[in-house]
Amino acid sequence: MIALNEIPTEYGLWHYWVVVSLMMLGLYIVIARDNLIKRIMGLNIFQASVIMFYVAMGKVQGGEAPIWPLDTMEGHYQDRVFSNPVPHVLMLTAIVVGIATTALALALVVRIKESYGTIEEDEIREIDGSIS
């Protein structure tokens, strides 16, 4: 925890760079790959970057987990710093949404493989003739 406090403020935005790099990486995979599974993986990276964005947003430097310990009951909590729990809690929901999406996407890919015999989008396009 102390190490985090010692990070100079001019590096204070580095987590945003991590988030943006991951986001673009994920988006690139989704756009550039033809393999349906790889695109889902790209989508997952994309979603994970947003989760990191929220979690980083809620983190307060030097903040503890916002659990109500017994000793704070006696009025000692004024000089303690807590991280903001709301973005973290929101991400629980977002993780569930992400898992549901991935599960559904994988189920679709299984069905696609069953009916087309391939999971490469360009090959599927060829089998179907030109769509749109």
Binding site: V30, R39, R111, I112, S115, I124, D128
Partner: peptide
């Protein structure tokens, strides 16, 4: 329909 659903999902 499967591919349509997949593209919509993405």
């Amino acid at each position: 329909a499967l591919m349509a659903a997949y593209s919509y999902l993405i």
